[in-house]
Design a protein around this nucleic acid. Structure first.
Lengths: 161, 161
DNA sequence: CGATTTAAGGATAATCAATATCCTTAAATA
DNA sequence: TATTTAAGGATATTGATTATCCTTAAATCG
């Protein structure tokens, strides 16, 4: 079980969009080039962000994507779920129904105990992702990325905005 | 991102093995029939449990699998990791290295900030799974499964042990 | 107006992991 | 000696992920 590589891509894209001044957009082309990922396929992931109302878009030259909300109101969970979907990672196929001892009219009152536990763990994962905002990622990046690289990157991005 | 269906299978298998008296084994054939899953493929998953020392095996007639430890010392994480592996669900491809502004000799001191957050969430998931033992699953099942079905199932299993 | 740039989305192909089956080997039992 | 069993190698089959191409419609600008 591995998350789509698109998840990594859009998280980094959102970090970059977070650094943009108001009313500026970044195109798929620019985002793909900066991160060294395939433009067409990245585009599909960005469309997911757009459908989830995490980013908004505009067309034409100098068009592209910008964040639709303040960075403090966008969580990792929002972004991950936009790409991976909201369905739990554990799918219960209810194999208890295959128990040869069950009468044909047996009816379960609760979801399977195994599934409940697995879904609790899934929720713990989502809860952790929900607790981290894009704002806090940007804070961390600001500390981790060397000042000169940060500056050069900003200029590179601004030249394409 | 969806967990293998084998994870569901072996969790239910372990629950069944948990109900066995000492020195009794259940064969792949019996476990597969009880849960209505393909015997050959279930066998691959049970081999994983065996390699992880969660179960032990014996050959020959009346052979098969039994738990290698008390149910209080087997966690959901043990079982899930035996089948899914221990690698984090988020793979960091370090796409920050593709930043066109980086000098060729740039060297990162820390893992990528994005990856660290995703790995924290992964750990929250594993931590939750680690907190649930096979013993507590059996407790829950004892409450949830109707007494008559529980009894019939025990007899069905014991007849094949 | 017309050329260019852009996101959106449909269609389709390529790759790889998950699912599944078959077969051989060696150990335990009876 | 015949049977039952787990282990593991080999090999399909299926389905999700990854990737590319193309068309459409909107925004920009000369």
């Amino acid at each position: 079980m591995i998350l789509k590589s698109q998840v990594e891509w859009v998280l980094h894209c959102c970090a970059l969009l977070a650094g943009l001044p108001e009313n500026h957009y970044l195109s798929t082309k620019t985002l793909a080039e900066f991160h060294g990922v395939p433009k067409e396929y990245l585009s599909k992931a960005l469309q997911n962000l757009s459908q989830a109302a995490i980013v908004e878009t505009t067309l034409g030259p100098s068009g592209g994507y910008r964040l639709a909300r303040p960075t403090s109101e966008i969580t990792f969970l929002d972004i991950v779920e936009a790409v991976e979907g909201k369905s739990p990672t554990f799918v219960c196929n209810n194999i208890r129904e295959n128990n040869p001892c069950r009468s044909v009219d047996h009816c379960d009152t609760k979801p399977c105990s195994v599934a409940r536990i697995m879904w609790d763990a899934d929720e713990a994962w989502r809860s952790k992702l929900r607790s981290v905002t894009l704002a806090s990622l940007v804070e961390t990046l600001a500390k981790d990325v060397p000042a000169d690289l940060w500056k050069k990157s900003s200029e590179w991005v601004m030249a394409r905005t």
